[in-house]
């Protein structure tokens, strides 16, 4: 059973989140090392948990919502670690890790049994993987937007506190926001196409106009507009930050809708 590793990851992310939040509010830089180490170990445990689950199930562990959420959390931490290694922005962990923890907690709350897939649905993991990766992009954009708004507010109100000292420059956050959408949007697009194709094969209709599918389309259109606005008429900086926060809220709503209706299995 991969459950021990899953639980270990959960505990490590919880402790890591605690340390990262303490780091955020303390003047000292020393806590960042501890937080990073815990996160790193947690990530390894998480990787083992995912791999064991995959071997047990005999397919990519993305057939249930539990698996999807766990994968989502894992990718978030991966992205954080990559950005951390490249730019040494520890404070990003104070925002990303709580998000990873929340998604892992929701994974824990969802049914954990390995679903047996009908043969027609065994391509569904392509849809899930791509959509999840796209969503990770939006999540990072959300975090960057949130950090942007905080730093913007601190600069505008001239409150040069600990948070101000730790947050990275505004244009870095704006760039991170842009890159995440640029990477996330095509992935989501492919994810939706893959989903439509699987549905076509499984049900014979690629779209049956249920509310979740509608929400997904709305989200897609929303991000499309956000991306185009940025690339053409300068929807960057503060506006982009607001838009990506709203967008991510839509994504979460879609998710909740799908999960509530689907009761654990993606089909």
């Amino acid at each position: 059973m991969p459950v021990p590793f899953f639980m270990a990851t959960l505990v490590l992310y919880l402790i890591g989140t605690g340390f990262f939040l303490a780091y955020l509010l303390r003047r000292s830089e020393a806590l960042s090392k501890v937080s990073l180490a815990i996160t790193g170990i947690g990530f390894l445990a998480h990787t083992v948990a995912l791999l064991t689950r995959m071997m047990e199930a005999g397919h990519v562990p993305l057939a249930s919502f539990h698996e999807a959420m766990s994968f989502f959390s894992w990718t978030l931490v991966l992205v954080f670690l990559i950005v951390e290694v490249r730019h040494r922005i520890h404070v990003l962990g104070s925002f990303m890790l709580p998000l990873a923890l929340i998604s892992l907690l929701s994974a824990a709350a969802l049914p954990k049994e390995v679903p047996t897939l009908e043969p027609v649905l065994n391509t569904v993991w392509v849809h899930v993987t791509l959509s999840m990766l796209g969503t990770v992009g939006f999540a990072v954009a959300f975090v960057a937007g949130l950090m942007y708004l905080i730093q913007d507010g601190l600069l505008k109100s001239k409150r040069f506190n600990v948070l101000y000292a730790k947050l990275p420059p505004l244009d870095f956050l704006d760039h991170l926001n842009q890159q995440s959408i640029i990477l996330g949007f095509p992935l989501l697009t492919l994810g939706i196409i893959a989903g439509a194709l699987s549905a076509e094969f499984a049900r014979g209709s690629f779209l049956n106009w249920n509310p979740e599918q509608l929400w997904a389309l709305v989200t897609w259109v929303f991000y499309f507009v956000v991306l185009m606005g940025r690339l053409t008429v300068g929807w960057r900086a503060k506006r982009a930050a607001y838009l990506t926060i709203i967008g991510f809220a839509c994504v979460i709503l879609t998710f909740i809708g799908v999960v509530l209706k689907g009761h654990g299995a993606i089909a």
Binding site: Q151, L155, Y164, L167, P168, P169, L170, D171, F172, H175
Partner: peptide, 9 residues
């Protein structure tokens, strides 16, 4: 110092 909080490069 303030400029560095707005522009990274």
């Amino acid at each position: 110092e303030l400029a560095r909080k707005i522009f990274s490069n």
